[in-house]
């Protein structure tokens, strides 16, 4: 039972962090760069692990942030220097990084406890078994403080949340109107890479739980649902988190019922919630179109 709670708690934090960051990706129309970073972060994780032989959180975060920023920067440079459309340059960079990541995993399969499977799904069901133990394990004098993945995403969630609270107004201006922000003297490029850093950290911390690709669903889908209904940025952030938490609960139930992957089921539920929202809005607007005749 405690295991279920750890799984749900970890999934909830993953979903919430992704939803918060995703809001800005959607508003800044950078959903695709979010997709790209979530793929290339795999390479960052693998390289960080191969170089340092450690899975400590700061190292994983560092590797992912470096690769994430590199992805954003290279895509942009390729767009400028190679004169390619920006989505094409994004596509070229992230597929390459991801491919190298997968190759390294299969080359050093014996040395990394990562396999192609968990790159795709994550292993949220195993999250409770990889715990952090404080103190001496043999002497049983320490105590178990819970799963590593939980604390990882917990720290990242705190960073994401506090960044958004502190720089709420800046982020709002930049998302709403980049050229106005620039004319007000705000360093738009800095904030762009700041956001990319948050995306990289979120995806790497979510990696254990949901893998490299399903995280895209959590980044993009709850934020899009919120975008459809929210009327202020604050509301959109709250709603995105709300949608994501609902998706976690429904997804967990779905996975339990079908005996399917928990992470995939959460992503599917997020999508279903989006489609329900869209359907509801379509019905509403049709009804509104019919009504004016009576009200006039």
């Amino acid at each position: 039972m405690t295991n279920d709670i750890w799984i749900i708690a970890t999934a909830a934090l993953v979903a919430a962090s992704c939803a918060l960051v995703g809001v800005f990706l959607i508003l800044r129309r950078q959903a695709l760069i979010g997709d790209a970073i979530s793929h290339s972060v795999l390479l960052g994780i693998v390289l960080a692990y191969l170089i340092t032989d450690s899975r400590a959180l700061p190292i994983m975060l560092g590797g992912a942030v470096i690769i994430g920023l590199l992805t954003a920067w290279l895509s942009d440079s390729l767009h400028r220097v190679g004169k390619l459309q920006s989505d094409a340059s994004i596509g070229i960079i992230f597929t390459l990084f991801f491919a190298i990541g997968v190759i390294l995993i299969s080359l050093y399969a014996g040395q990394i406890d990562l396999d192609q499977e968990c790159v795709l799904y994550g292993e949220i069901a195993f999250v409770p078994f990889d715990t952090i133990y404080i103190g001496n394990l043999a002497a049983e004098s320490g105590f178990d403080i819970g799963p590593r993945a939980f604390w990882g995403i917990g720290i990242v969630f705190t960073i994401v949340l506090s960044s958004i609270i502190i720089s709420f107004n800046r982020l709002k201006t930049i998302a709403f109107h980049p050229s106005l922000a620039l004319s007000l003297g705000i360093n738009v490029i800095f904030w762009h890479y700041f956001l990319m850093t948050l995306v990289s950290m979120t995806t790497v911390a979510s990696f254990d739980a949901v893998g490299a690709i399903l995280v895209v669903a959590l980044l993009v889908i709850p934020a899009s649902s919120a975008y459809l209904v929210a009327r202020s940025l604050k509301a959109m952030l709250w709603m995105a988190v709300g949608y994501s938490q609902l998706a976690v609960l429904i997804g967990y139930a779905l996975a339990f019922w079908l005996d399917s992957s928990i992470s995939a089921s959460i992503a599917v539920s997020a999508g279903l919630l989006l489609f329900v929202t869209i359907a509801w809005q379509q019905v509403q607007s049709q009804r509104r179109q019919r009504q004016p005749i009576d009200s006039l």
């Binding site: 795709l120 399903l214 669903a217 599917v268």
Partner: peptide, 30 residues
């Protein structure tokens, strides 16, 4: 038909279908 922009539509479709596929795959494997 909705306020969702083209880039988000792409990312939504991609990740939703992929998740659905993985969900079915894990279901089949069970």
């Amino acid at each position: 038909n909705t306020k969702i922009k083209a880039d988000a539509a792409l990312a939504i479709t991609l990740s939703f279908f992929f998740a659905l596929g993985l969900m079915l795959l894990s279901y089949i494997q069970g």
